[in-house]
Simulated assay, not measured.
Amino acid sequence: MKEDEDGAERLWGKCAAVEGLFAEPAPLPREVLTLRGCRPAGVLSEALTHPGGSPLSLGDLCVEVQDGAVPEQWWTLVDVAVLAQRPHPDDPERYDIVLGAGVTTDDGSACSPPAAPGFELFAGPTVTAAGSCAAVDGLYRTRKEPTPVPLRLIGCEPAEPLLRALRRPQRVNGDWARLLVLDRDGAAMASLVVGLSLGETRPSVIGGALVDVTLTDGGDERPVPADRAVWAQWFHGPPETPNQWAVYDARGRAAWLDLTTRAWRTPAPRSDRSGGVHRLDGRFVTDVPGLHCALSEALLGPGGYFGRGWNAFRDCLCGGFGVVPPFTLIWHDSEVARRSLADVVHDAEGGLSYFQEVVALLERCGVSVVLE
């Protein structure tokens, strides 16, 4: 599917299968950066007390660059390892921290810092505060784009727009389209952005008048191979019974939330409903993705979407997703989440666990939360 000049989506073609739908993203080159004058918090603060030896891995760090107090740019440091640390020469209460990481940004224009830069650090999928610093040496430099990972459309039946593009591929190179992945009943279960840089086209291995078309850039929204089991389950249709996500680890549960986000199974609700009692089955809430799976099911039923992280969940509570406060939420077996998320902190200054923050947010928004 691709938008035409009038903004209407047009079908470019259908295919029987996609080779390369599940793919690891192209690895980013490793770089060495230095956080100057850093006041660490959360996982970054813990890293400074880590004993010597192999570099401590912190996962991903988000760098929010502010102009004064206004956020302007967002960078992601991928698979961060702490390589060295030392007191900052002008302030012994601050540190210069040397990191190894891949570097990426959603804003390709972020090639220079703003006029009055400030740097805030956040960690993990829960966007937990990890400190602040005065500068990040090595952040602003020219980088090559990673080599894209191709995608092959198998058994493709091109519609007229794609036939025209195949005759003159240079006209669409660098453009984009949406790849709708259908379940076995023909309903769209996911939507992925793919590049329209056309590579090899040849008679299909399936036969007939079909063709196999290679897209040289399959996009960066694809699931990874570890997500196959979750996608296979959704291929048989949206879940009809609760807790089907519970058998997966945190990675699989995050993939489950991806599908609730992307699914086009039902239209957006015409109006939100409030009031009533919702019951949350807390037996399997052992991580942050599990918490959001359980919350979404409690409010909207199996396969429903009500946020996949802190910011999205907060936005959903403001309305537009089928349920809006006030209502009552009875959280059964809440002690499971209290214990499992005791060390997961969203706001380092507030000092509350992720579980406590979610409960507090619900109550601030007018939800009566009953913990059982």
Rank of each mutant, 00 (worst) to 15 (best):
V285Y: 09
A116M: 06
D220V: 11
A177L: 14
L329D: 08
G351M: 15
L28C: 00
A188T: 15
E19C: 06
L139T: 00
L151H: 03
R86A: 11
M1H: 11
G304C: 14
L215A: 11
S340W: 05
V136C: 00
S112C: 02
Q73S: 04
S54G: 02
D347T: 11
E240R: 13
G275L: 05
A115I: 05
A177Q: 11
G366T: 14
P169D: 10
G366K: 13
V103H: 01
P25S: 05
V213F: 03
A190C: 12
F122L: 12
L362G: 07
T328L: 10
V323K: 05
L163R: 15
V324T: 12
A268T: 03
P223V: 14
V127C: 11
G309I: 01
L35N: 00
P87T: 07
G108R: 06
L291T: 01
Q244W: 06
W331P: 10
V213D: 03
A209F: 07
D343M: 11
L257K: 02
T261A: 09
C38S: 10
V78Y: 01
E19P: 03
D287M: 06
L196N: 02
T214C: 13
Q170K: 12
V336F: 11
S45Q: 15
D343L: 15
D79I: 02
L371S: 13
A135F: 00
L259W: 05
L192P: 11
R339S: 12
P326Y: 11
V98Q: 04
L299T: 04
D315P: 01
L56G: 00
L210A: 04
V370Q: 13
N311R: 14
V370P: 02
A101S: 10
G322T: 10
L162Y: 10
G208M: 06
V70I: 11
G319L: 07
L198V: 13
R270N: 04
W331Y: 15
C156W: 02
G138E: 01
V63Q: 01
L77M: 06
R202I: 02
F313D: 01
V213G: 06
F355K: 01
T214P: 08
L58V: 02
G301I: 12
E221P: 04
K2T: 09
L21A: 14
G108H: 05
Y305D: 02
A16L: 15
L180E: 14
L166Q: 07
L166K: 02
V213C: 05
E31L: 01
W74C: 15
R262H: 04
P269E: 03
R30M: 03
V78K: 05
A254K: 07
M189F: 08
R339F: 15
A263P: 00
V247F: 04
T105H: 05
D79M: 02
L162E: 08
C365V: 10
T286M: 08
F284I: 01
P161S: 05
A115N: 00
L166W: 05
Y95M: 15
R152W: 01
G207F: 06
V369H: 12
V18I: 14
S296C: 12
R167I: 04
